[in-house]
Design a binder for these strands. Structure first.
Length: 580
DNA sequence: AAAAAAC
């Protein structure tokens, strides 16, 4: 483990300034290319995709099915719909300068469709919001300072809806500024800080934002702090530590806004340490994820605790499958539904491809080969489990790949945070991760995503590759597939087609496997997974290292009673614990 | 259809 950290961080190898200039070079080139392709495509009018678009957008649900047939038929460039989007959702606090230097990529507009009663008119500029809704000018200032210039599609439509206190289901592609779409209205409605109105018993937590991972909650919190500059609101990123302070009622009464993962909040509710009866705004980010089986109960419990009659609810996501949408709509009151671009379709800005790799063993050589040639760092690599993330990262380090990092939820909070910061600072060239990183995370610099392990759903695919191509930048996504992935290959291939990437003929000719067949193959896959898929490569080097580590641990245990906290790397055992 | 994440 220590070897891993040393190697991957290896000071000598990492030449930051060089990296930076590479990045700049890339940016310059790319934005020109993006401009060119935009202007080339848009004016030509590409009728077929446009027509397709309207068909789907107006039809509402079930588009995926409808799209499959012609996806196969007209193939290729045809399916490339209008360029959409983009905005400037930026990231994180420490990224302000980076944003400044990268400046504005082209911002093609998305088609937007809305459905619902009395839909408020959209705005073209942030200034228009002040005229119409009288939102605090300090907030507008902070928005400008954070580098936001023009509202994106979801912002110009979603913000007025939320400012008029309507419930909203918003579907907008990855990297198109959803975060600001809900933060601005919520913060605009927040009013005076709870701490300042002691006489008012109706203060306390007035807004709640729920996200599926700690990392995403943290990122939202950062964004929130930027918008809140100059105000005295107490904006809390919920964690074990902050939850512990809530035993004191005075502390919780001063909170204005909470950003949290659901379970954390449920724990505090059940402990009787939190009142949500004055919450006026609830936002579910990554809504389809928040409403799937594992989270639904928790989310419902939180929502049930928000008993104020005027509570406004909003759900946001880049994907919203029909069943999730049903659940979402049933929670909302007289909702408005806004769809930007094509539902469940990635951005055309992302150049996607599929790579055949026969079987699991063939993946590592393929990846090493890829990384031995010039690529655009940072690359984000997705695998299907924590142990696979750990061992793939180790294999890469051992193979001499520079600046390799790893991030999964089995790591300690500190390790996770450190990994994210390295990523944000541009120090990671190759980041190996699990689904934790698949949703919402906004690393502007990510130019390439590799699905080392095949994604388990269309939604997962869309979100994973959506880590690149953000805010109008171009991106590249490669997906490895093995024979075992065959049953799900065609579904993903159709997603590629829909978003303007090309797919080899033979894949399109694959029959759609029957449900039974899929189930059968699923079984085989699972059985094999149990047998061999925990670790990636199992090189001799790693085996040896593991044995050494194991014996060290044994020794450490024996002497533990004496030396206790003195071990140099308490976290190493945890992260490496699965090595058995 | 299934793992990851949430604590």
């Amino acid at each position: 483990m220590e070897a891993f950290h040393l190697l991957s961080r290896g000071g000598a190898k990492f030449d930051k300034s060089k990296f930076k200039s590479d990045v700049n070079l890339f940016n310059g080139k790319k934005s020109k290319a993006a401009n060119a392709s935009t202007s080339a495509r848009a004016p030509e009018g590409e009728l077929p995709p446009e027509l397709d678009f309207f068909k789907y957008a107006q039809g509402g649900q079930g588009k995926r099915k409808a799209s499959e047939p012609n996806g196969g038929a007209d193939a290729k460039g045809k399916k490339r719909r209008v360029e959409e989007d983009e905005d400037t959702e930026d990231e994180d606090a420490d990224e302000a300068e980076q944003a400044a230097e990268e400046d504005d990529p082209p911002m093609p507009r998305h088609r937007v469709t809305t459905k619902g009663n009395n839909v408020p008119e959209h705005v073209e500029t942030f200034e228009a919001l002040r005229e119409r809704y009288n939102i605090p000018s300090r907030l507008l200032q902070n928005i400008a300072q954070s580098g936001y210039k023009r509202p994106t599609g979801i912002q110009s439509h979603g913000i007025p809806i939320l400012l008029e206190h309507r419930d909203l289901a918003a579907i907008s592609p990855t990297g198109t500024g959803k975060t600001l779409s809900y933060l601005l209205p919520v913060m605009s409605a927040l009013g005076a800080p709870a701490a300042s109105s002691k006489s008012n018993p109706g203060s306390g937590v007035r807004a709640l934002i729920l996200a599926p991972t700690r990392e995403l909650a943290h990122q939202i919190h950062n964004e929130c702090l930027k918008l809140a500059q100059g105000r005295k609101w107490k904006i809390v990123l919920f964690s074990k530590a902050t939850a512990a302070t809530l035993a004191d009622k005075k502390v919780r009464e001063k909170i204005d806004l909470i950003i949290s993962t659901p379970l954390r909040l449920v724990a505090s509710l059940q402990a009787g340490n939190l009142e949500l009866n004055n919450v006026r705004h609830i936002v579910l980010d990554e809504a389809d994820r928040m409403l799937d089986a594992e989270f639904l109960e928790q989310v419902q419990e939180v929502i049930a605790a928000c008993t104020h009659p005027e509570v406004q609810k909003a759900v946001f996501s880049a994907t919203l499958p029909a069943n999730a949408e049903k659940v979402a709509m049933s929670m909302l009151r007289d909702p408005i539904r806004v769809v930007v671009g094509l539902k469940d379709t990635p951005l055309p800005l992302i150049a996607q491809s599929l790579t055949y790799v026969a079987d699991d063993q063939s993946k590592l050589p393929t990846l090493l080969q890829y990384l031995s040639q010039p690529y655009n760092p940072p690359v984000l690599i997705f695998v299907s489990s924590q142990p696979r993330a750990t061992s793939l990262a180790e294999e890469l380090v051992i193979s001499g790949v520079p600046n390799v990092d790893c991030l999964h939820a089995g790591m300690t909070m500190k390790e996770r945070e450190d990994a994210v910061s390295r990523m944000r600072r541009g120090e990671s060239w190759v980041m190996v991760s699990t689904e934790v990183m698949a949703r919402g995370m906004d690393f502007k610099g990510v130019r390439e995503v590799i699905n080392y392990d095949f994604p388990q759903s269309v939604q997962s695919y869309i979100h994973r590759i959506g880590r690149t191509g953000r805010a109008g930048r171009e991106g590249k996504a490669i997906t490895y597939f093995t024979n075992e992935d065959a049953p799900f290959l065609k579904t993903i291939a159709n997603v590629l087609l829909q978003s303007g990437s090309t797919v080899p003929e033979w894949i399109l000719k694959l029959p759609k496997p029957s449900k039974m067949k899929r189930r059968e193959m699923g079984k085989v896959k699972r059985a094999e997974a149990v047998n061999n898929a925990r670790r990636i490569g199992r090189s001799d080097a790693i085996k040896k290292r593991d044995m050494v580590a194991a014996s060290k641990r044994r020794k450490a245990k024996e002497t533990q009673s004496k030396t206790d906290g003195a071990t140099s790397s308490p976290h190493a055992d945890g992260a490496d614990g699965e090595s058995a």
